[in-house]
Design a protein around this nucleic acid. Structure first.
Lengths: 220, 220
DNA sequence: TGTACATCAGTGAACGCGCGTTCACTGATGTAC
DNA sequence: TGTACATCAGTGAACGCGCGTTCACTGATGTAC
């Protein structure tokens, strides 16, 4: 019945049903909100019997946990890509610029995959003890702490604690993402290009909090 | 049946059932998470028939919208109180310090009423066109824009756009709140006192982004 | 002081619904020999 | 090349459940006269 499957030979074995189910979750969340997602709805979207998702993921929480885990990996990839784009021009880049780039990556992922981003932080819907989820989360977090550590080494913390700078940078990127997705920031700032807003805000933060070694008489 | 009602004369008319229902929402959300809240559960907690909530609030979305609206008013009050506490010592305070105080108020509200804070941003569960909700939201937002405006007037924006500073401050406070409530920040920073963490982060932001008129040769 | 009446708060039975989970099953695939 | 068998993906019927909403109702309150 789904249009996109018309020309595909429908077989008993799907091929990669787990992946198809995760895509269906994205669509279902985007359409009806996280609270309205059901295993049966997801199965319907994937064109599969309603008990198939439970077969692969054990339970509703299992399905959402897998979806969130995939989200963290994709977030890590997006942040890394944004940092890599910095170095395209040349050399081992400015550590502070990397922090800003990661913020942009975080934001880009969130805005590009709002449903997934939301599920990642809907803790009451996930299996809290899941190992894979924790590993994916750790991977993302260590990207940020490493970059702040590099700023520290480069003498750009100006006496501030790395933990505090990390918490601030993470909070800023997270808040930007959540408020943009919810529509609040778009409504209040009138800004239409989310990436532009994020870049402006993040650059301001990095410039103010992680300036280069102070030059006497510097103004900004 | 609820213990706290034992010594109260139970009458047919409750007195202030709407308020009691909103308190029950808080408890229900805190216990089972937003997704698991039901009108029937809330009614049960308030010791009232399951159709009473619909009588007062029209629908489930109506109940949650009223809960969120009350949250915005309380948030505004908390932020104002934190600013007022600044002036206790003396005079018309530092505009930048007001921004930090509002951030602390935002955070204090969120941590003190996590269930309410969560519902306020669970847009898919609210009546989006509700007038009272919009008015309460506006009240909160205008507190922040006014404070940033005062910073502007005091020459503390250093050429930055007020809109961008506002977006950054809001995002930072919001991200701090969301990440603390979810437990992520507590886990990663090891900090146990949320207020202390918030104060440190917010002070750092304000000091870096909204410094006093630059003094030649200043370092920090 | 007493009676009538309008108003509104709260009730409880009934409805139809979609849900998550379970379980015995069937169909397809691949490997061993 | 062919047969047997194990494995696992996916099925579909069945279960019991709690839900939101509706609606005719009853109980309490207050006001008019």
């Amino acid at each position: 019945m789904p249009a996109e499957c018309q020309d595909v030979t429908v077989t008993y074995h799907h091929g990669d049903l787990p992946a198809a189910l995760l895509e269906a979750v994205e669509a279902a969340v985007a359409e009806h909100g996280v609270s309205a997602v059901s295993l049966r709805d997801v199965a319907r979207r994937a064109g599969v019997s309603h008990s198939a998702p439970a077969h692969h993921f054990g339970s509703k929480a299992g399905l959402l946990t897998a979806f969130a885990t995939a989200g963290y990996w994709l977030l890590a990839e997006t942040a890394r890509a944004e940092v890599a784009a910095l170095g395209a021009a040349g050399t081992a880049a400015d550590a502070a610029a990397e922090v800003a780039a990661m913020g942009r990556g975080y934001f880009r992922f969130a805005v590009g995959h709002p449903a997934q981003f939301e599920v990642m932080f809907r803790l009451d819907a996930l299996n809290p003890a899941d190992r894979d989820l924790a590993a994916a989360r750790d991977a993302v977090y260590s990207l940020l702490t490493a970059a702040v550590g590099r700023c520290h080494a480069a003498g750009r913390l100006h006496g501030r604690s790395p933990e505090v700078v990390t918490a601030a940078a993470w909070s800023l990127a997270h808040g930007l993402s959540a408020l943009w997705i919810s529509g609040h920031l778009a409504q209040r700032t009138g800004e239409q290009d989310p990436q532009k807003l994020a870049k402006t805000v993040l650059d301001m933060f990095v410039q103010a909090v992680l300036p280069p070694q102070p030059v006497p008489g510097e103004d900004r």
